[in-house]
């Protein structure tokens, strides 16, 4: 009996502590809690999704046609390219209010934040420029002439290069971040949309929406190492339109969103071979990782949802309805 008593006691005590711990976890913001921000170009909203439960926390109204979004260095602000409002709106993520706007030139679509966190670089499709904006002084610092319809923007984490793609010129322009001059141009396939540096900054990947390929460019020599093509049984070649690119931090895998093909391609960065195609929603364009990189989230513009991909198992595990025509996505730890 005594034995039983003591067992019961310890059991009870154990579960009490467990309960307490669980409560603590629920109450205090645990390490794993994070929020997903999705811009919806048709709704003019930013949707906040809980990273654990995938419940929609809130929808915040912003200016017309929000597309590209980016977090400030400290994660306190969200920069939103409101394309039809012709400026960048700055959303305070504590109050969820737009505090001020930044000048961007007409129809901003995508932006990147410099590694120093002060300057943002915006592609202006209407006048063949890349605009550099000082977020502190809230003014344009410089405009850099590039090809026709600049779109994709990538910045190397070492602060050396800004790569911009121009959709009608079909080039990746290498801009020296110190001089802010175009130093080199690499011809890629038709309608380059997104540029992304690998984690080690040795390569930059450029997706060509109409060409249907991803060009892997060696940064040192500015030569194309490989053009990765895609083939999906039962899907017409013209429907395979690569747009968003994401590299895992460990540098092993890359994920490429294939637009109307409703697939995300998984690529081994070592061999540059496609290892798997994951079926997601329609017109998949942009992606982001969860902070622990165990999940990948995609925006699917035509099916109005966000797919959740399990990175370990390489399986799509859920889709979450968000705003109408979701476009950009970032995860805030």
């Amino acid at each position: 009996m005594r034995l039983f008593d003591s067992t019961c006691y310890s059991l009870c005590r154990g579960s009490a502590i467990g309960l307490l711990m669980a409560t603590c976890l629920l109450v205090s913001p645990g390490l794993r809690a994070y929020t997903i921000y999705v811009s919806s170009e048709k709704d003019n909203t930013i949707t906040l999704v809980d990273g654990e439960t995938y419940k929609i926390l809130q929808k915040v109204e912003v200016g017309e046609r929000p597309r590209g979004i980016a977090l400030s260095m400290d994660g306190a602000l969200l920069y939103v390219c409101t394309s039809d409002a012709d400026h960048i709106e700055v959303l305070d993520l504590e109050t969820l209010k737009v505090t001020h706007v930044l000048p961007s030139g007409p129809d901003p679509e995508l932006l990147v934040l410099g590694p120093e966190g002060r300057y943002i670089y915006v592609a202006n499709e209407d006048d063949n420029m890349v605009t550099v904006v000082d977020t502190e002084k809230r003014e344009k610092v410089k405009e850099i002439q590039v090809g026709v319809e600049p779109e994709g923007m990538a910045i190397s984490s070492d602060g050396k290069w800004l790569v911009n793609t121009s959709e009608t010129t079909n080039m990746a322009h290498f801009i020296n971040l110190e001089t802010l001059e175009v130093e080199d141009n690499v011809l890629v396939d038709q309608r380059p949309r997104v540029a992304q540096f690998t984690t080690d900054n040795k390569q930059v990947w450029v997706s060509s929406e109409i060409g249907g390929t991803v060009s892997v460019i060696d940064v040192a020599s500015r030569k194309i190492i490989k053009k990765i093509g895609f083939e999906i049984p039962g899907i017409q070649k013209e429907s395979i339109q690569p747009v968003g690119i994401k590299h895992s931090k460990d540098g092993k895998l890359a994920f490429v969103a294939l637009g109307p093909a409703a697939r995300v391609a998984v690529i081994k960065t070592g061999s540059l071979e496609v290892v798997k195609y994951l079926l997601v929603g329609q017109r998949v364009w942009n992606m982001d990782f969860s902070p622990d990189e165990k999940q990948i989230f995609t925006t699917n513009g035509v099916s109005n949802d966000m797919s959740v991909i399990d990175r370990e198992r390489l399986k799509v595990k859920k889709s979450v309805q968000v705003g109408r025509m979701p476009w950009g996505i970032v995860v805030r730890p």
């Binding site: 959709e167 038709q190 309608r191 929406e209 109409i210 249907g212 013209e238």
Partner: peptide
């Protein structure tokens, strides 16, 4: 040959 012509595909 493929041309991007604002029609969705080449």
């Amino acid at each position: 040959f493929k041309l991007a012509a604002f029609k969705g595909g080449p």
